[in-house]
Design a protein around this nucleic acid. Sequence first.
DNA 1: GCCAACGTTGGC
DNA 2: GCCAACGTTGGC
Length: 152
Amino acid sequence: MKYWLMKSEPDVLSIDDLKSKKKTGWDGVRNYQARNFMRDEMKKGDLILIYHSSCKVPGVYGVGKVTKESMPDPTQFEKKSQYFDPKATHDEPRWFMVEVGFVKKFKQAVTLEFMKSEKSLGDMIVLKKGSRLSITPVEKKDFEKVSAFGEA
DNA sequence: GCCAACGTTGGC
DNA sequence: GCCAACGTTGGC
């Protein structure tokens, strides 16, 4: 089993949205590295730190899990979608997603500011300067530490 | 709103 | 295949 961190803007999908929807297709990712993680590496049962970006207090707000593995992202075929990709075909989809289920919302957010101050989390990719990747693998020890902080 | 960092595109 | 130009991300 692997561990991941997935970014979302709370205006688009917040941890509360995920809680009320129970699960959702993680559509709209248009970055090849992130796509490859979803297409090839994320497996059912993997746990996910749900991170909120582009908001007042960026940080990890809860935990999700992979409930369905790799499938074509339907928004690439929808002409009216902002994620429409004219080069994608049903025979050869370009973009893939996984389905993410709600696990829990932390008692307290583990903020970016806090994670930066916590030297033991220094290896996390999301903390690296200039890191824009919206899906990143997370080490088990870091997942556990962040979870512990969130539930403290 | 600014801007550094990064990814993608396209001319050559 | 290089790389300049452009677009996007995301913290601040």
